[in-house]
Design a protein around this nucleic acid. Structure first.
Lengths: 249, 249
DNA sequence: CGTAAAATTGATCTGTCTCAACGTGGGTGG
DNA sequence: CCACCCACGTTGAGACAGATCAATTTTACG
């Protein structure tokens, strides 16, 4: 199987089993692979989505800017994540998508998407994946609304770790997370200064260390407890085994 | 046309024109009308959605509770709003939906939904409606993340007014809004006490008055400016005329 | 190496929370 | 029909998490 769609296929298989045909279809229709540099926009507010985006490497994020220049990240797109194909219906996006660090993405053209959506299993997998992303969005609202800065960051780390683990990118409680402290600040709606102080405290308490774009979780159980993190909303029931299986690549 | 599906039909027609057949189909399949009292759950976290919900009267809200009992509203469901049919795919909801005051809703059974989704125009209308709800969710994240208490409440009022106006329920800058100050607090993630103070100030400044479950907008332009409100994300371009047209009911 | 982005630290300030009353209206039972 | 009650709204005083402002240090990289 071509390396390009490996993570995507495996991510989608979390949501619905795919036939060999469907896997092949994914591969064949993934004709356009694009690379982006940090801060490049993969999609721009006001324009339509350029096609169905699937991230194959790196982190991207939906975001909005306020008139005063502040930025709020609205969602993270990690390797294996696909945008909701329904977004293609919209003639203009209400937000933008940026690369946070170097990103590689497959862009399925619209007619390829139509082919994909004709396959019931693929359509179901895409829909379920979108449902999970909505659930994540609800957690973010909860975080920003009611959690302390400590809990917000800690919950975000749990989420990122779980999502990366689900695609085999978090072997042994550690993962590469190419986020800047400012990115984290814009995600959880806290000042960069305060993010820094909170990260220092997390290090001191030996829960997690986030340094040099690397996240190391020292005590997952305690971290999840501190965050009030319940992974069920991510719908990756067989997290552990799946991750084991995926690690072969 | 039966009164039940009037608002629903007209709301959906904002997103895609429906044929007489499709309108008829909506009516015929809307077999079960249910009434709820304040605080009743229309759907419960952990359970599947009981069918496709469409609100025909009153306000409902998606919400989540935190372990310490605090509540965060995640979305408002106003008359004419339909849940995303995709949610039926999920075996268990990650949040609940409650009635805020008396509510009347149509519950389309699953097989009716399948019929509806076979009609391309209906499927498109439902998808577009869901896209708008997602855009609203992003605005909420922005509000809770970066807007002051004043802007949050003011932006919420702009949103509610625009959405009600779109279904003909806000004639002359005023509308019934059966929310409690606590409901508003749980929506914009502010303390009820502080919501109260902010409402008092809004009255003093003669921008809006919210009292006795009635919202009266004294100066829409200034209110929108104060809120940083840009209605385009609601995708009701012909807001004014449409509202005029709908008012016939 | 030089330069810019990212991280770190300190001192101070403030919007909102917390706690604690008190007012008020509408519904209910005696 | 009155008296009580409970949810909701209103007001005040003080506390605090996190913001803001202002450097300084470290890191990444051309």
């Amino acid at each position: 199987m071509s390396g390009i769609t490996v993570r995507l296929t495996r991510r989608l298989e979390h949501f619905a089993p795919l036939s060999p045909q469907e896997r092949a279809l994914l591969q064949e229709t993934a004709t356009s692979v694009r690379r982006f540099e940090s801060r490049d926009d993969l999609a721009k507010q006001g324009a339509p989505l350029p096609g169905l985006l699937a991230i194959t490497y790196g982190f991207a994020a939906r975001y909005k800017l306020l008139p005063d220049g502040r930025r709020q990240l609205l969602a993270l797109l990690l390797p294996g994540d696909v945008c909701d194909p329904r977004a293609l219906l919209s003639p203009q996006m209400d937000h933008s998508i940026a690369a946070l660090g170097p990103v590689e993405a497959v862009v399925f053209p619209e007619d390829a998407v139509r082919q994909l959506e004709e396959r019931p299993a693929l359509a179901r997998a895409l829909a379920r994946s979108a449902l999970v992303h909505e659930a994540i969005g609800r957690q973010w609202l909860l975080s920003v609304g009611h959690r302390s800065s400590f809990e917000r960051i800690t919950h975000l780390f749990c989420e990122i770790h779980a999502r990366l683990d689900a695609v085999g990118l978090a072997p042994g409680r550690a993962c590469d997370v190419p986020l800047t402290q400012v990115d984290i600040a814009d995600t959880v709606a806290i000042t960069p200064v305060h993010v820094n102080r909170t990260l220092m405290e997390l290090r001191r308490t030996r829960l997690v260390t986030f340094q040099n774009k690397r996240l190391v979780i020292h005590d997952l159980r305690s971290l999840q407890r501190a965050a009030g993190f319940d992974p069920s909303y991510l719908c990756v029931p067989a997290l552990a085994e799946t991750a084991e299986f995926l690690r072969e690549k």
